[in-house]
Design a protein around this nucleic acid. Sequence first.
DNA 1: TCTGGGGTCCTGCGGCTG
DNA 2: TCTGCAGCCGCAGGACCC
Length: 426
Amino acid sequence: MGRSADLPRSAGERDGDDAGCTILHVDMDAFYASVEIRRNPDLAGRPVIVGGGTRGVVAAASYKAREFGVRSAMPMGQALRLCPGAVVLPPDRAAYSQASQDVFAIFRDVTPLVEGLSLDEAFLDVSGALRANSTGPTLRPADIARAIRARVQEELSLTCSVGIASTKFVAKLASARCKPNGLQVVPVTDVREFLDPLPVTALWGVGQRTGEALRRLGLRTIADLAATPADTVRRAVGSAQGNHLLALAHGQDARRVTPGQGEKTVSAERTFAQDLTDPAAIATELVRMSGEVAVRLRAKGLVARTIGIKIRYADFRTVTRVQTLADATDADRQILACASALYRGLDLDRPRVRLVGVRADQLGEARDQARQLEFDMSGSPASAKPVNAALGRVLDRARERFGDAAPRPGSLLEAHAAAKREDAVP
DNA sequence: TCTGGGGTCCTGCGGCTG
DNA sequence: TCTGCAGCCGCAGGACCC
């Protein structure tokens, strides 16, 4: 969302010779804000900011809010100084997730080759869709893109922008360039002409640090980068990244559209309105975050072999610690035990903690793990693990059914009661 | 000015092993 | 038995993305 600010804009459609351009990058326009406006049409035309919290940043801003200079990832205080009249809404991830599923269902109607990048954008390889239509009237990638845009608008009352090119990264730049509500084809023969004037920061993988390193070499545009000796670029940004950026600058990107790549990490973290100094409060947050991770693992049918914690101190220093388990797990108690042990290992004297996070890595399918554990169920100590996991699943179902009234860890009861008391304050 | 949350990927380092 | 080395792996941290 934020990177499109680096690109010159040209709204509307830019058609061209799309022969060989079988990769579409579809990017929803101001997705979170648009979902909120669809839910409450009174907000249409008003500056809407999704985000919040006393230490929050902007998660998404409507195009009206962007006219005031509001950008995603901007601290809320700064956003409200720029746009005091903005309507600020807290993020509703469940609603965005549902809207995302609806959008992706339309994509998959067109082609099975859909690679989601996030809730609001995806690559589509439509080469198969072209072949499937070989007996009917000639269908071009741009026609398919137009059909997708029309369906998203008519069926979901949302708008999207589509970039069409022969490579993923050019398609992505094209969609950013035609936002909002646009379509742009970059013909195979025009790739260099399209790339050359763009700033190096438009390249995928060039953020603040890398951008600075390239600026020190006097490189401003992609044309500058493409004309620089490989050794010079590699010295500035490292060999792997240097090679990657040079290939992109020359319009080379061999990556295919690969659907159905599973998640590699599940994590939960929280920044507190005030830094935590009470070890008991920090421990409570570890319980909460571990529980969240466990619930989400079970919801996805996954188990994790590596558990990690992330602690950010009041001075914004961040430390992470991870530990690999003997057996993969999705059980609250095992995840919490590991997270707690890692936290104790930090041996903090007087902690001032701004953020607590728990994450699960090295994910596998839970059903594969279940098959392995069947061999351990004859009274060995390992038999406690499936019992823990089964208990977690029972609690998940109770939470689905009873919500707040469902059983929860004892250490969370007091925190939950306190939160309810805070909610009751007008 | 004051820095979210959920991710992926890369790099460097140290320990282990053959 | 000791040492040097290469390869692998786990870990910590950083950069980047949306």
